[in-house]
Design a protein around this nucleic acid. Structure first.
Lengths: 157, 157
DNA sequence: CGCCAGTTGCAACTCACTTGCTGATTTCTA
DNA sequence: TAGAAATCAGCAAGTGAGTTGCAACTGGCG
């Protein structure tokens, strides 16, 4: 975990989310009403948001917000490494999904049959990332591990 | 490795590629001149191909080939699990890249600075996939692990 | 060697995302 | 607490990757 990161939720699971507004303020990022709103929506989301859903949700609070602002804010949050971008195996077209970075990276499992997304955290994954860094000399900034297949329910029988 | 798969190259590295034409014939897929050409291009490629480059290369051999045919053939090869689709961390926009499936999945490391793509194979990754299958009951069909950061050269100094 | 399900080329279309510009806002300085 | 400088937002037009409907064509079986 980066020093100074602000987190919440259970520390045991590795799933604590960063607190975006605090981190943005700490980094001296200019806080406009639009950014506040977009960041709130992402922070409070309990499912994976694509840009269009994010825009829709943000407009409920701040109707004038534009698509371009949403994309520009997402870009900003990605660059600051406060959110992760996902494809979810392109189960529903080519759009991207966004989620607040958690302390430990997690793996996304996408079921091709029922479309459900499962999340999975593993010390083995952390170990693999360390191995990569050590063996290749790579400074690992972002990782994305997505798995496609059939979930337990859909693969029985 | 699936039974009956045809492979080539050194078996030691896990990087042997499937032989697409053979596998297509074996599966009874109708072989048109266009499909042959597209498959040859993918098979012989020594770098990651996006759809546009694939089209361009295929047209050098068979000038009438259309973009739609390339996309439809890629879709076919993906469904038959003969090729993998990559994003390469969207280093060059939103397009996708394709490569012939190898015996062992490999990890793609994308350098944000110089743009180079490194490949990495690890038993730990195979172990992680088994763990996922065992713990979640997921029938793992496709995996994609991409890492973004800075390569050894770009991170020194 | 003729048939026909499956495939192709074409052109128009969709969808996610980007960009140039102008006017508005935030934050810094005095 | 003004005013200035820098940054940001909204708008609307544009881009680029990928998709689709359709008529013509063809691989491979009978």
């Amino acid at each position: 975990m980066p020093s100074g990161a602000t987190i919440c939720d259970s520390v045991a699971t590795g799933k604590e989310r960063r607190v975006l507004l605090q981190e943005l303020t700490a980094k001296g990022v200019r806080l406009t009403a639009q950014r506040r709103t977009i960041v709130e929506v992402i922070q409070e989301a309990d499912e994976h948001l694509d840009a269009a859903s994010l825009l829709e949700a943000a407009r409920k609070r701040e109707p004038s917000i534009d698509r371009a602002t949403v994309y520009r804010t997402i870009e900003l949050l990605k660059k600051l490494r406060l959110v992760d971008e996902l494809d979810l195996m392109h189960l529903h077209g080519e759009k991207h999904y966004y989620e607040v970075k958690t302390r430990q990276d997690h793996i996304h499992l996408a079921c091709f049959q029922c479309g459900r997304i499962e999340e999975y955290v593993s010390p083995l994954f952390e170990q693999l990332k360390s191995e990569i860094a050590k063996k290749t000399g790579f400074d690992v900034r972002v990782t994305r591990l997505e798995v496609g297949g059939r979930c337990r329910n859909c693969s029985t029988g």
